[in-house]
Computed example of a mutant assay.
Amino acid sequence: MNRWIASAACAVSLLAPMMPVPMAHSQSLGEKTGVNSTLGITPTTQDFVTEAANSDMLELAAAKLAQDKGNADEKKFAEQMTTDHTKTSKDLKSMVDSGDVKATIPASLDSSSQKKLDQLRDAKPQDFAGYYDPMQVSAHKDAVSLFERYSKSGDNSKLKDWAGKTLPTLQHHLEMAENLKKRD
């Protein structure tokens, strides 16, 4: 019994530095690290809103950069991202503001998204596609996974329905992003 207690205490002390510090409306460690995606676990409503909002903010900011630095295909893609992600941002904000969804929308990008945006901003025009195109594929794979998981098992019916209706658009974005990458 004492060995078991000692082992458990050791495990807790090893894991403690990796545990997230509780913050108001913080994202769960699983969603932040993609573990939930890998395991197919449904995000909490707050995690879904946080991830969806971060995705929209990153897409909108990246699209602005693509309009300046991108090639013709990237500019066309960025135009579509601006239209669609502006709509999803408004939809999400409306659901939260109305009280239909009890969550907080982040006011700014999380550090991981900000790092990606900084890389795009710092890229020279001739190197831009090498950053933007794979980032778009990765970001849309993550978004499709997030929206699929929430639309199947989310705990807020209105948000769950919206995620399901939005999913085909995100799947189309993923196809478009994969085609961008093929042209490189």
Rank of each mutant, 00 (worst) to 15 (best):
K76C: 01
R183D: 14
K90I: 12
L117H: 06
W4E: 14
D110R: 08
S7R: 13
T33N: 10
Q27L: 11
K165T: 12
T169Y: 07
V35L: 15
Q119N: 11
T166K: 00
A61H: 09
K102E: 12
K93Y: 06
N179Y: 04
S26H: 14
H173N: 09
V144K: 03
V12W: 01
N156V: 04
W4Y: 13
F48H: 04
L120A: 00
R149E: 09
K76R: 11
S13E: 07
D118E: 08
T50E: 13
D68M: 10
G40A: 10
R149D: 10
S108W: 04
D142Y: 03
K160D: 05
S153M: 04
Q27D: 00
Q67I: 02
G34S: 09
L167Q: 01
T88W: 01
K93I: 02
T44D: 02
L109E: 00
S138K: 10
D122N: 15
G164A: 07
D84T: 10
M176I: 07
D184G: 14
E31R: 02
L174Y: 00
V96L: 03
L58H: 07
H172F: 05
K124E: 13
E51R: 11
N2R: 14
D155S: 11
P17F: 07
L92Y: 05
N71A: 08
T83G: 08
L109M: 09
K90M: 13
M57Y: 08
D84P: 08
T83F: 13
L15Q: 05
D184A: 01
L14S: 09
K32N: 07
S37R: 15
S28Q: 07
M19N: 08
L167N: 02
V96K: 01
D184W: 04
D142P: 01
S111A: 15
D73L: 12
F77K: 01
A143C: 06
F77Q: 05
Y132P: 11
A66V: 13
V49A: 04
A53Q: 08
T38I: 15
T45F: 02
A62V: 09
L29N: 03
A16W: 13
A123Q: 04
D118R: 00
G164D: 03
S145G: 09
N36K: 10
D73H: 11
T169P: 03
S138W: 00
A78C: 07
Q27C: 03
K124I: 04
P22L: 05
L159P: 11
K87L: 12
F48L: 05
S7V: 07
L39S: 06
G99E: 02
A139T: 06
K116G: 03
G99A: 02
S108V: 09
D91P: 03
Q126L: 11
M135Q: 12
K76V: 10
D184C: 00
N54D: 06
N71T: 14
T169V: 15
F128R: 07
L117K: 05
L180D: 10
P106W: 02
S94N: 12
G30H: 06
E175H: 08
E178L: 07
Q119D: 14
E74L: 05
V12K: 02
E59N: 12
A8E: 11
Q114K: 14
D56T: 03
G40Y: 08
R3E: 15
R3Q: 14
D184K: 08
M19S: 12
T88F: 07
A11N: 04
T166Q: 00
T42V: 14
K102L: 08
L60A: 06
S138E: 10
W4A: 14
K181S: 09
T82F: 07
S108R: 13
